[in-house]
Amino acid sequence: MNTLSDTWDWLTDASHWSGAEGIWHRLLQHFVLTVVCLAVSCLIALPIALVLGHLGKGGALAVNISNVGRAVPTFAVLVLLLLTPVGDWGDGPTVVALVLFAIPPLLTNAYVGMREVDRSTVQAATGMGMTGRQVLFGVELPLAAPMILTGVRIAAVQLVATATIAALAGGGGLGRIITAGFNLASTPQVVAGALLVAVFALIVEGLFEIAERLAPAWVRGTG
């Protein structure tokens, strides 16, 4: 019970929220890292998934290969990258490790969403004279949008939770609060850092839910 009380005292101490080591600054670093990694992951995974899903060839192999990456701990990937020339790129190792971590849900959901589009609808669009590009962007992509956005939401929440590893490579983010707590043998600070990450992940999840509710019907898959 004392730990919870001490954690609350730590969180409500105004001095812990300001400055370069403060919560607001670490939260901003965490947010930027998450957005950058999510954007890079989307730029890599989504085009591949959309093209393979449209062609119906090679997608299963790509998904299986990407899913193998889920079995490799992100921390292990980060450590290996730190031992390579990539380790000299500042936040490069962390970004690469997190991008590799986020690709599987993005690729899998986008590909499955594309392949679950009713083939008769695609054939009808083709029969009407639509080109492959028009079918992809005008028919398949809108119908696959709900699954694609689900993959983006999953990847975003996972990135928020996993971006704490940046602290292990000397980077910023909320993970620095946790590692500093360990260094100081301060259990309240460690618990506070973990709570902040959990709350941030829940907020991101909630924002995606709100965005989905406010999105057009075709994005929600109800149109």
Results as ranks from 00 to 15, higher is better:
residue 13 D to T: 11
residue 111 Y to V: 14
residue 25 H to P: 08
residue 67 N to H: 14
residue 111 Y to N: 08
residue 33 L to S: 11
residue 78 L to T: 15
residue 73 P to A: 05
residue 34 T to L: 01
residue 9 D to I: 09
residue 140 E to K: 03
residue 10 W to K: 06
residue 112 V to W: 00
residue 66 S to Y: 05
residue 187 T to L: 00
residue 10 W to N: 06
residue 40 V to C: 04
residue 69 G to T: 15
residue 130 M to L: 11
residue 170 G to T: 13
residue 185 A to L: 11
residue 156 A to Y: 14
residue 49 A to R: 07
residue 46 L to S: 04
residue 94 T to C: 06
residue 118 D to G: 09
residue 181 G to P: 07
residue 133 R to K: 03
residue 125 A to C: 12
residue 17 W to E: 00
residue 163 A to Q: 03
residue 28 L to F: 02
residue 26 R to I: 05
residue 91 D to G: 15
residue 83 L to Y: 12
residue 185 A to G: 14
residue 18 S to V: 13
residue 207 L to Q: 13
residue 205 E to F: 10
residue 98 L to K: 15
residue 99 V to H: 04
residue 40 V to G: 08
residue 45 A to I: 11
residue 88 D to F: 05
residue 69 G to C: 04
residue 105 P to W: 00
residue 41 S to E: 07
residue 213 R to N: 06
residue 108 T to D: 01
residue 69 G to N: 10
residue 167 A to V: 10
residue 16 H to F: 03
residue 163 A to W: 07
residue 158 Q to M: 03
residue 97 A to Y: 10
residue 150 T to Q: 01
residue 187 T to P: 07
residue 15 S to A: 08
residue 73 P to H: 11
residue 192 A to H: 05
residue 220 R to D: 07
residue 6 D to F: 00
residue 87 G to S: 06
residue 56 G to I: 06
residue 12 T to W: 00
residue 176 R to T: 15
residue 46 L to V: 15
residue 152 V to Q: 04
residue 136 L to N: 02
residue 214 L to C: 09
residue 138 G to Q: 01
residue 112 V to D: 02
residue 163 A to T: 13
residue 93 P to M: 10
residue 45 A to D: 02
residue 189 Q to Y: 03
residue 136 L to R: 01
residue 63 V to M: 05
residue 141 L to D: 04
residue 17 W to N: 05
residue 15 S to H: 02
residue 143 L to V: 12
residue 69 G to H: 07
residue 3 T to Q: 01
residue 167 A to L: 08
residue 212 E to F: 13
residue 48 I to A: 04
residue 155 A to S: 13
residue 32 V to W: 02
residue 129 G to T: 15
residue 96 V to D: 05
residue 194 A to K: 06
residue 63 V to I: 12
residue 32 V to E: 00
residue 55 L to S: 10
residue 83 L to H: 08
residue 18 S to A: 12
residue 186 S to E: 02
residue 1 M to T: 15
residue 93 P to H: 15
residue 66 S to L: 01
residue 40 V to E: 01
residue 62 A to D: 09
residue 181 G to V: 07
residue 161 A to I: 13
residue 189 Q to S: 04
residue 185 A to C: 07
residue 136 L to E: 01
residue 138 G to S: 03
residue 169 A to P: 15
residue 37 C to W: 06
residue 65 I to S: 03
residue 211 A to C: 10
residue 82 L to G: 14
residue 20 A to T: 09
residue 139 V to W: 04
residue 60 A to G: 09
residue 124 A to T: 11
residue 198 A to S: 09
residue 206 G to H: 05
residue 220 R to T: 15
residue 176 R to M: 12
residue 163 A to V: 14
residue 51 V to Y: 02
residue 20 A to N: 03
residue 31 F to N: 09
residue 15 S to V: 07
residue 210 I to P: 14
